[in-house]
Write a protein that binds this DNA or RNA. Sequence first.
DNA 1: GATGAATGAGCCTTCATTCAT
DNA 2: GATGAATGAAGGCTCATTCAT
Lengths: 190, 190, 190, 190
Amino acid sequence: MRVKDEIKQDALFEATVKLINEIGFAASSVSKIAKQASVSPATLYVYHKNKEELLVSTYVRIKQLMGLSVQENFDDRQPIRDILKQVWANIFSFVAEHPAYFQYMEQFSNSPYSDLVNKEEVEAYFEPVIRIILTGIELKIIKDVNFDILSAFIFFPIMALANPRHCKNFELSQENMETAFNLAWDAIRR
Amino acid sequence: MRVKDEIKQDALFEATVKLINEIGFAASSVSKIAKQASVSPATLYVYHKNKEELLVSTYVRIKQLMGLSVQENFDDRQPIRDILKQVWANIFSFVAEHPAYFQYMEQFSNSPYSDLVNKEEVEAYFEPVIRIILTGIELKIIKDVNFDILSAFIFFPIMALANPRHCKNFELSQENMETAFNLAWDAIRR
Amino acid sequence: MRVKDEIKQDALFEATVKLINEIGFAASSVSKIAKQASVSPATLYVYHKNKEELLVSTYVRIKQLMGLSVQENFDDRQPIRDILKQVWANIFSFVAEHPAYFQYMEQFSNSPYSDLVNKEEVEAYFEPVIRIILTGIELKIIKDVNFDILSAFIFFPIMALANPRHCKNFELSQENMETAFNLAWDAIRR
Amino acid sequence: MRVKDEIKQDALFEATVKLINEIGFAASSVSKIAKQASVSPATLYVYHKNKEELLVSTYVRIKQLMGLSVQENFDDRQPIRDILKQVWANIFSFVAEHPAYFQYMEQFSNSPYSDLVNKEEVEAYFEPVIRIILTGIELKIIKDVNFDILSAFIFFPIMALANPRHCKNFELSQENMETAFNLAWDAIRR
DNA sequence: GATGAATGAGCCTTCATTCAT
DNA sequence: GATGAATGAAGGCTCATTCAT
């Protein structure tokens, strides 16, 4: 029975991502999502309290997945530059492998729905990375400036590059990834 | 007969920005927007073909305003770094003075509505800036890498910093602005 | 000035007939009719009190035109059969020449709008024909039965035949017209 | 889950006929029809794709009912005149017993909605009658003329007589029925 | 007279959600 | 648990008509 449950759960997750990406929040109704997931609208309410909770939990799940990806091969005994490069590569991989998740994330986080998210819970997934940057500052490897500014140069350029809505023809190749990281590093290093 | 009323036109523009920012695309109905603008829902259709066109034209108008702002005090006889710093400062000013416009822009451009925009028309507003970067590359002042990568480090960090959804407590101060520009410049310069 | 008036008046008449025929009462709006007539919706109200009056007056005008046609070459000194045949031929001609008017008439007279028509005014146009039938009965040339029954066999078959909604492929030829009259005559003659 | 409710289905059918007859296509809204049927407007869409389909299916259902009525006591071993008289009487009965259905039929078939009907499906209900007439022609009992002309004298006079919009005071009595049939027979017989 | 702007009311339809099985 | 039926509320949009020029 639990197997069956998870199949429906997942189907709803994927259907939500797909529909919201394709037609947006305004046009995505519960019944359309249910149809896309091949379940009854009533069934959706077995798994989610209401539409809002469906959308928010979909976002949180994606953030969770991304958080896990980002920390793969994370080894804080390595030099800071190498760790950040690994993180950068991990984000890259996640985005390249799950463009739909990424797109949903971007749309969601720029909408008022994002106010409903427990920010701390989500940020926790990225805590190790944050700690590394702070260490870099302490060790005078990274510029000693406002943390938001640093993260704006580490995380956002890669998000922009990966977002086809912003960079339509950018290729998510290994080479481009490395080139971009060099710019990020030049930006933040002392 | 009566003549079209610019006041109504503007009221609809402001109402659209305000409502979409506050409650998002999904919850913003034509009648709510009309009420916010103090006109009849039917009147909205005198000025706009339909809801979609209202949203798209609101976005384009904001882009236009931003494009004009960005090019203020633009003097291509100056050193490239100074020009870019001026552009950077202009974006900063626009965002600081019109946070609502900026927020609308971000939400819109990350939604499927953005597919409806004539991209070339909008990009034209930013053409002089693009030209400067290309010149910088030719003069070997700026790194010779993919243009998307460069712009990801010039334009997007500032967007991220200015976006309270991403950097809740970042202060749009002169000092922060200058610090951030230094990072951007370090990222792209040779 | 009067010439201009009549042009608009006629344009509205024709536009009404055309639109009602093509899309029916439910889908025909004042503004669509005005557009079809190349006038402003407001102008329509210069010529007609409201939508209802426009539709009714259009019907009455058609009935008037038909009434005039029916009585062409009407000579009550002729034998009754010949007079009726002439009437029959006249109806035929009217319908063949003005299929749109006829179609409007049929749709209108089968709708509740027909309750708004002053029936006596309209029937007056056909009074001479009625008189002829009554004379035929008196002279024992025509069957002495309920008048409605007689008229159902004189007037309605031709309406049915002429109506493409009922007889899609019926040809309004001279020969068919004569054949049909023979049946009508056989029906009513003693 | 609940099961579709035939009572609601029928209530919608009757409500549609009643309202369209009373106030016509232009004034009959979905919500008025739903109210008349004592269901929610939304429920109407459980049973019908849209308003158009409701109107068309209502017409087809009436035609079906009429087709069944027409063929009652149909015995093609009888003389042709007797068969046609039986058919004539059946139409008469149907119309006398279901004046509302008949009125709906007339209004509908004279409107552009009739273009949406699958004509062949509807005509199939009347196929046996058509065959009888053709047989009559072959046996030289009925005039050998265009089929449309024959049917215009068999079916349409009775429709006209039964239609209070055309014959306001005509009484649907047995006697009148027989008289009228005699005229019809005189019209078509050799 | 002629018109496009303006509008409250109402259109058809779909919404998010709950009910009954 | 799972579902299609059921619905009041609301959606986007157009309506018939009047206003202001």
